[in-house]
Structure formats: C-alpha cells, structure tokens
Design a protein around this nucleic acid. Sequence first.
DNA 1: AGTCACTTTTGAAACGATTCACGATCCCCT
DNA 2: AGGGGATCGTGAATCGTTTCAAAAGTGACT
Lengths: 335, 335
Amino acid sequence: MTGPVGIREVAARAQVSVGTVSNVLNKPELVSARTLELVQATMDELGFVRNDLARQLRMGGGTTLGMIVLNVANPFWAELAHACEAAAETHGHTVIFGSSDQLDGREDRYIDLFEEQRVRGMLIAPLDGATERMNRLTRRGMPLVLFDIHAADGDVCSVALDGDVGGYLAVKHLLDTGRRRVAFLGGPLHQVEDRWKGALRAIDEVDGATLTHFDTADQTIADGRAMGDLIAGLPGDSRPDAIFGANDLLALGAMQSLVLADGVHVPRDIAIVGYDDIDYAASAIVPLTTIHQPREALATEAVRLVLDHAANGGVHEHEHLLLPPRLIVRASTAR
Amino acid sequence: MTGPVGIREVAARAQVSVGTVSNVLNKPELVSARTLELVQATMDELGFVRNDLARQLRMGGGTTLGMIVLNVANPFWAELAHACEAAAETHGHTVIFGSSDQLDGREDRYIDLFEEQRVRGMLIAPLDGATERMNRLTRRGMPLVLFDIHAADGDVCSVALDGDVGGYLAVKHLLDTGRRRVAFLGGPLHQVEDRWKGALRAIDEVDGATLTHFDTADQTIADGRAMGDLIAGLPGDSRPDAIFGANDLLALGAMQSLVLADGVHVPRDIAIVGYDDIDYAASAIVPLTTIHQPREALATEAVRLVLDHAANGGVHEHEHLLLPPRLIVRASTAR
DNA sequence: AGTCACTTTTGAAACGATTCACGATCCCCT
DNA sequence: AGGGGATCGTGAATCGTTTCAAAAGTGACT
C-alpha cells in the first residue's frame, strides 16, 4: 500500500521539479518531448490522480457550475438538466445539481452549498422570481442565470422561453383546424400567465372563439386526468372541442381520461395540444401535438451567459433572452 | 468592493486568532459564549462564506459522493438518484451525478472526474457488471457500491433488487388471476435475466402455463408500443392473455397500443404487469399493476454501505444486499 | 503566594496543486 | 570565443482552511 501520490512524489521519482510536473499537466507545450514522456510514464507507474480540490483552491474557484431545478420528477427539468450538463462539458465545466422540490428551504440550502463550493456560477429555476437573496448574490459578483422567468428588471441574466408566443401558436393551431371552444388546463395561473395571455391573443383574432380556464393545483398527470374526467362529463353542446394543456403532463392526463370515455374520440371530438414536448409526448396513446421548447438552445445559452459573466465580470451586460418555441403537430390535433 | 473575505479577515476584524474562528465554525463548544457571539457577528458583517474547497483539501477529501446512473431519462433512475441525494443528506454528504447514457466512455470519464474531485465514495449503476477499472478502484481503497447487479464474486459491495423474486411475484399473480399464456417483454435478455428466470419459475408451477419471450432492443415506451402492436395483431387463440413487462415503460407502451386496438380490452382480454413502479404507473390509462422496487431502502442501504466503507476501511466487509420487491396490484390485472 | 486542574486562545505547520521570476542550457552567428 | 535568443526547468510562495501542541487565563484550595 503506497502512500498518497501527489505531484511531489511524481517529481521526486522522475527527478524533476514539481513545477515541471505541473507544466506537464497544464502546459505541455512548454515541456521538452523527452521530459514530457518521462513524467507521464512516471505518473502512470505511480497511479497519479490530480487533486482537483487543491487545483481549484489555488486557481480561485473552479470549473464547476451549480444548477437548481424545480423538480427532477418532471421530465422537462430532468431533460433540461441533462442538456445543461452537456453544454457545460463542451466548455470543460462540471455541473452539480440540486432539486428544490418547490420548497423555499431547499432552494436556499443549495445556494449556500454552491457558494461554499465556490462554483463558477449558478443556473437557477426559481420558485418565485428573483429573490432578494439572488440579487445579493449577483451584487457580490456571482454569475447567475435564471430560467424561465422574465426578470427584465432585476439585475441578473435570464433565459426564458416565450410562453406568450407558445400559447399563441398552440391555440392558433387549434383554431386553424376548425376548433372554436378551447379549454385551457393549468395552474396556478401566475405560473403560466404568459401561455394564457398568448392563448387569449389567438382567440381574440377569431370571431366566436372562446377560451375557458380550468384551474389545477399542480401540473401532474393526475391533475390532467381529473380535468379530463370533468370535461368528458360536460353536456355535448357546452363541452370544449379542444384542450390546451399548460404542460404535457396535464395534456397527457386529460388525453388518457378522454380516450377511455364513451363517445369521445381524440382528435375527432376533442383535439389536444400540450406544452414542453417531453419524450413521452411522441409516444402517447395518440401522439401529442405540443409546443417544443428548445431545451438544447436554452441550455447552451444559459451556460454561455453564465460563463461570459464569469469571464468578463467587468464588462458583462445582463441579457434577457427570450427563445421562440415551436409547434410540433402530431395526431392529437388532426382534423 | 471589499476583497475576498476569508477566515483571516474575520480573525483580524474580530481581534482573535484564525484558530478561534475555525473553532467557531467547527467546534463551537470549545469557544466561550462571548467570543462565539463576537466572531459570528463579525462573519455576518463581512459576509463571510466558508471555502469548502480549502476545507476539503485540508481534511483530505470530502463529504461528497459520486453517483453514476444509467440513464436519467428513465424515471426509475431519476427517482433513485433523488432518493440517494436525500439519504446522503441525512449523513451530511452531498452527491454529484453523472449519467452514463449507456456509453462506456462516459462511465469512465465520470469515474475519472470523481476521482479527481476526491469523492468519499461512488455509487455506480454499471453498464455491464464490475469492470476491471472498478475492481482497481476498490483495491486502491475507494469505497464503491454497485447497483442492481449481483457482484457476489467481485470484491465490491453491491445493492440489488431481487429480480428473480420480482419476476416470480409478477407472473404468479397473473396465473392466480387465471391467465395462462404469458408474454415476457424485454431485452437485452442478459440485462433482465433474473426477472425472466423468476417468471419461468412461477410458470413451471402451473400445468399448461406458457411463457413467451418478446425481445426488445431498448426499454422505452416506444419499444413497448411496438410489441403491443405485434401482440394485438396475433390471432386470437395464439395471442397471450397476459403481458409481463420487464419495466414499466415497456408495459405502459404495450398498454397504450392494446387499449387502442379494436376488440382488445385491458385487463379483460389481456392483463398487464410492469416493473419498477415509476410514478406514472399509477396514473396510466388503466392503472398499472407492477412490482414496486423499494427505492428509498435501496438508496439508504447503498449510502450506508459506502459511508461505512469510507469510515472503517480496514474492517469493512463487502456486503451484497438483495432487497425484496413487492407486488402492487392495480386495475390492469383485475379479473 | 504557590499549585493544580481546567477552560480558552494562539499561531505556525500542514493539505496538494499552480505560478512566476529566475537560472541553466543549448544553438547559431559573427 | 563570446554574445544573444530561445527554450526548459526550478523551487519558494501562495490559495483558505484545519489541526494541535503549547501558552495563557481562571478559580479554587492549600
């Protein structure tokens, strides 16, 4: 059992100085070919593994980003986290995650943790807009990017998907295919306000079209099913002929319920549009028309912003990106 | 803009030594009440945040665990990761994640990364059993726990769910409810061998019962749908009257396909059992009977083992836990 | 005043890497 | 032979903590 092998042990064994070993690791072009090979051989022989803690300490904080998502149980966030990890990797950075599970306490705890870890920056999907806490963070110089929120006023960067446009596209599509009585599934309303407004904008463009809000406490499949049951039970003439779910889980839940209901056919009697384009959307019972959120772009941009801020703290201008969503037409809204 | 504030700045401002400040942080009981309060006030005033990198460096590796999951896109792994995070938290540890996405390269890269980060131990869901790489890790003293694999021979700990029992329970239940021609959905076979064997064991107990293997390349909803279509198309008398999916996604996919098929009713004509009890299982079109894997127990035990190994490296005996799964009966197998 | 036991506080030495101002070599050219 | 420029290699200082032996302070008792 050999003791811990550090850069010093390697140096001693290879008969060079620690500085040279360090150069082999970080600036190989400064080292002659012979020494390079010698040192690398010695490293292999001794099974040297660079201690990243020491490295980061010396370099003043590291190549790590912290990310807080709302809820890993929601595929959208899981997929986004995954995309961010990939994006960070292309810049040679690592991401550590925390799931706030919609609890204030956990959000704060992760922020503390990330600060202690001296992360290079944070990517946060905030529970309720930018908190005072977060503003203080940026003021102290911590690069911060908020997801999915229009913090156009706060002094932080944000990357959001244009919910207004998304809502508009979804409902416009329903109207274009001849539907007129649209049900909007989702809540709490302030969390999905943009999508609602966009939906309303589309409705206003067509005479005789109506939009009804069906409020849900959460946004799970179960909530969707409950609403689906409700809608299926409505008398034929007041029953909507289209449903717009504020997220795919709601839409899928409603779809499940309707497909089983007697005398209701999807999409013939009721068309359905979801939101997020999670992986399951395409493989639903009736493949779900939905609004695709460009997750990769979102992730790429968020990572770009946070690293830019980290690199050029001085000249960094806060940006507020609003990415356009895209309509994906599938069977659930066929005529 | 004040410079970086470290333990030294706090000490200077509060007119005490750095040792005292450190004690306030780590062993408050050694510090007199007055000094404690003074130092804490100073910390607040200066906005001190402990540098965990330095802390961990000094303490020789940290309070961090590394976890590699097969695929975050699969809810089972996402939920397990989440459970491990929670379990580690109760021991004051943090978990950093990596998703191998079923690629050898990524698995190795994460192992390297974790080693450089000097994690306290690793939790790995391996692609293909314990690799030589992993054995070498343990030999060098890295605490390691493998998931869901019977590495009874390798010199590492493992925590697995008893797939044999799970398969047995699932098929026994189908037989108990009168079904006789059972289809086993899943593949590649070596990855689900235990479940298959358990299923076979149940079949052998009943005269006239048969088990047919329907191989799938992957284990997604889409694969399940494809198999469902296939099965729905079989002539009535050779068509199975029950399906056992090697995971919930397969079972759900098959269910979706069958529910839409003319003249096939679930569970009347074909009963379905899944495996994993992911969150969506309960809220499927027809709530899915499934084998519940005790995720929390799995996570708790895995974390316990890895930390035990880390704490008592010397006297640590490798354990190979096999946790019993549980049958959850829902509508998809009603008589 | 001196001793003893006990509680607090001190400050220098790690932990393992990176940095950087210098010194050492080597090669070519006049 | 000597000067000039690259090219390589050196090693002490440093990052911000924790640790720990020893010093200092505090009371009580002889």
